[in-house]
Design a protein around this nucleic acid. Structure first.
Lengths: 147, 147
DNA sequence: CTCAGATCGTTTTGAGCGCTAACGATTTCT
DNA sequence: AGAAATCGTTAGCGCTCAAAACGATCTGAG
């Protein structure tokens, strides 16, 4: 899909298509922004979650990220290869792995965060601050998020 | 990705993720709704475009649908196999194909439209009519659509 | 009129992605 | 102790998209 020009009519009038197109463009733009760091969106998401809860397990990450279990294995494999995270033995359950970030992982996460925030700013530039917040709340409601 | 439950925090607070998740869910739900008719979203889109401009060419469809040229060949092949559309000789350029719907194609398109509208109604049920319209306008603006 | 270059539709190839199903190891339930 | 559930993992399928190449056809410069 091309994202360098807005969708033509009549697609640009269909709410469903608009939602899908904006969603794909957003995902694509974030992916591009993370490329220079050697990361994909999944990597960024998992780094963030491990950082916020060190020692967490892969199962917990699956629940909190909506990433498929089999995909999670690959993501963590790659984070280990990049030297950003480690599987450690879980203190109370030998089936589980306790996941931790390395120092390099924390540094990379910071840079990724800066890149993501810059990208978000650019993406939502066509909207005012108020409009962006309205959009966010509508999307939350549409997604069925409580509260 | 699972769409039977809303995304957990902190994902449900990130505008970028919300946009991407809602977009994917929308695309997925439409795809499911079209399955009983033996159609995929691409088929529905192309049927709609041919119906609105009979005799159009594949190149024009590519421009108006944002579908990849190599994918467009497969989509039209399948529409022909299903007996919904036909490639006819183009009156002024023998390289081109003039595309037309069959009677069966028009009937199927009507049923697909009904199904799509029902699906859209269900998808946007969490929002009021005003909210849905606000969302649509914000998404248009975000996408960079003129007017 | 001719011939070089552009255009259109198509085919092929290959990479990337997420999902399903199954498996061994381990833990928990009964 | 045995049955069932959980965790991580692997292999394989199907789908979509991107890129390159091709023949057929049209267009424009000379």
């Amino acid at each position: 899909m091309r994202f360098d020009q807005p969708p033509p009519e009549p697609l640009a009038s269909a709410p469903g298509f608009l939602l899908s197109w904006n969603g794909q463009r957003t995902a694509h733009t974030f992916a591009e922004a993370l490329k220079p760091l050697g990361l994909k969106p999944h990597h960024f998401g998992v780094l963030t979650l491990i950082d916020s809860d060190p020692g967490t397990t892969q199962q917990e990450l699956v629940d909190r990220s909506m990433i498929d279990p089999s995909s999670m294995v690959a993501v963590i494999d790659e984070l280990e290869e990049l030297g950003l995270a480690e599987r450690q033995t879980h203190p109370s359950d030998r089936r589980k792995h306790a996941l931790h970030l390395t120092e390099k992982g924390r540094e990379t996460l910071q840079r990724a965060r800066a890149s993501a925030m810059k990208t978000a700013k650019e993406l939502f530039a066509p909207l005012s601050t108020d409009e962006t917040e309205t959009l966010r709340l509508l999307l939350r409601k549409l997604a069925g998020v409580e509260g």
